[in-house]
Amino acid sequence: MSAEPTAKTTPPPVVQVRDMDFCYGDSKALFDINLKVKYHRVTALIGPSGCGKSTLLRCINRMNDRVPSARVTKGEVLVKGKNIHDADVDLTQLRKQVGMVFQKSNPFPKSIYENVAYGLRIHGEKNKSVLDEAVERSLTHAALWEELKDRLQANALALSGGQQQRLCIARAIATVPDVLLMDEPCSALDPISTLKIEELMHQLAHEFTVVIVTHNMQQAVRVSDYTAFLHLGKLVEFAPTEELFTNPREKLTEAYLRGTFS
């Protein structure tokens, strides 16, 4: 069922999912998932709608905890070797370690500055110069600094859609997470903004480990180093992107890539 990538890795996987089953109430959403996310690489999760790719993504920072009946019923999720469901794991710290960007850009109705500084503030940072420095660094990483440095106090909702999404990326990386989860970050954007974000992802991979959910296979090809293909809650194939797209090992993967079903 699952496929281990062939390449040997020197740094240990940042995120490792082992034999995980996941349920919403009585209905099982994910079956026996095994996945290793490589350090400072972009990993894409693809698959037809409802295959569980977003659910899998949300397992990594336990966003599913907020759904009352949702739970992991078997297996474990490790982030930097630590089981995130252990009793001594602080959810606040975990989410600081694992940042997330959502499908629809969702900046807070605050100033640009406050949006980026939010993550640091809630983790208790009060020092103005630390905040200033983090805001500049994050906005620079998100390729927004040059555009916005003169109007940091403007309301974030006044920005264009693409800028808002990049601001959300800046907000997510301000706390310097180890992993950045992106849930279809370009699905609501125009082609030019999409292009900018895709360029940005290459840059981000130098600093962060990125996991991206996308329904756009071309995007997966463009941005990712590894690709996992899910179908009906099962991980069908996980391989380096080039290999998966040019020479899929599973029949199901091939059929999906050809567009036999979607």
Partner: peptide, 27 residues
């Protein structure tokens, strides 16, 4: 208050109280 604000705040590791007083009430 849009659900997305709460999602964003939660994903950044805010506690319930922080989300309520820094995001939901101001919004």
């Amino acid at each position: 208050v849009p659900r997305a604000y709460i999602d964003a705040s939660d994903a950044l590791g805010a506690t319930k109280l922080q989300t309520v007083f820094r995001v939901i009430v101001p919004a």
